Computed example of a mutant assay.
Amino acid sequence: MVNGTDCHGFSSAKTWDSLRPRSTIKLWASSIWFKGSVPKHAFTMWVANLNRLPTKDRLLSWGLNIQPSCCLCTTHPESRDHLFISCGYAEFIWHHILAKLHRSHLFYSWSELMSWIRRTTTASPTLKMLATQVTVYNIWKQRNNCLHNGTYLPPQTIVKLIDREVRNVITGRKGRKRFQNVMSQWLS
């Protein structure tokens, strides 16, 4: 018996639904979990959106004794919004990526970035979501390489890596409906 209804036997689906009821669908869910996304990019974007990445401001709040400054620009304390939006390193990258998506100005906050992804523009929604996820992933990856390995790549190199990765993802999914005509938009 589940929720007052006789199941006439065991049902794993009804048992799961009873133990783990579904939450309401979040406004940002379709911007992160979309068909054709790369799992590692989507996962990083999801954790970043929830502000759960172990940025230095969070590590400090946990009591770790570390330098709070961003390892990419070394001028401001590292937080999610600084690292992905207002850091000079990230701004350089976003400037080049957003130019490919026909957007002229940068974002001021994470919420503005998420709002732009959902808004209808001339760029394909799939391309916007893909490019954003690849950019966030690569900034986070570079931050970790800089912090843990002492390897610093200039932002121009990261822009080239992002461009190559977006092209590879589009090429790998060119037979899918949502990815038709996306390469021509990315290259224009």
Rank of each mutant, 00 (worst) to 15 (best):
L19Q: 09
D6H: 10
F34E: 01
C7T: 13
H96T: 01
S37V: 04
R103P: 01
S124I: 07
G9F: 07
L98R: 11
H76D: 13
I93L: 07
L161R: 11
R176A: 12
D17M: 15
P68M: 01
W110K: 10
W33Q: 04
M45S: 09
R173N: 15
N3L: 00
I139P: 12
L161Y: 12
R22P: 04
W140R: 02
T135V: 06
H82P: 00
E91I: 05
I97H: 02
S109P: 06
A90W: 14
W140Q: 07
T126I: 12
N168P: 00
R20S: 13
L161I: 10
G175A: 13
P154F: 09
S184W: 07
S12N: 08
R173P: 03
Q142L: 05
A123T: 15
G88V: 09
G4A: 03
I93Y: 01
T122D: 03
T151Y: 06
A90R: 10
N49K: 03
T44V: 01
W28M: 00
Y89C: 05
R167N: 07
A131M: 00
S23V: 01
S188E: 08
T24E: 07
P155S: 12
N51G: 05
R80Q: 11
P39C: 02
K160I: 07
L83D: 12
R22Y: 05
S11R: 03
K14D: 14
P154Y: 04
V47N: 00
K56L: 10
I85A: 03
R178A: 10
S115Y: 14
K174L: 08
D57S: 02
T126D: 00
V47I: 07
R52I: 00
L153A: 07
M129P: 00
T126R: 02
T74W: 06
N149P: 04
F179E: 02
G88L: 07
R176L: 13
W62N: 04
S11N: 08
I158T: 15
D81H: 05
S111Y: 00
K26N: 04
K128L: 01
T55H: 04
I66N: 02
V169Q: 08
K141D: 02
Q185V: 10
I85T: 15
T55D: 05
M114I: 14
V2L: 06
R178F: 03
S124E: 06
M45Q: 03
A90K: 11
M129V: 00
C87R: 11
T55E: 03
N65S: 12
V166T: 11
P39H: 08
H148R: 13
V182I: 14
G9W: 08
W16S: 09
A13V: 13
H148L: 15
W110S: 14
H82Q: 08
T24L: 10
K174I: 11
S109H: 09
N181R: 14
I162C: 15
A42Q: 08
G4C: 00
D163Y: 15
T135F: 06
P21C: 08
L101A: 02
H76V: 10
R118T: 01
K14V: 05
T135D: 03
L53H: 11
S31G: 15
A13L: 14
M1A: 11
W186K: 09
Q156R: 08
S23E: 00
L53N: 10
R178W: 02
T122V: 07
T55M: 09
M1R: 08
C87V: 13
V166M: 02
V166C: 04
M183F: 14
P155E: 12
S109I: 05
N65G: 00
H8P: 00
S104Q: 05
T55N: 09
T55Y: 06
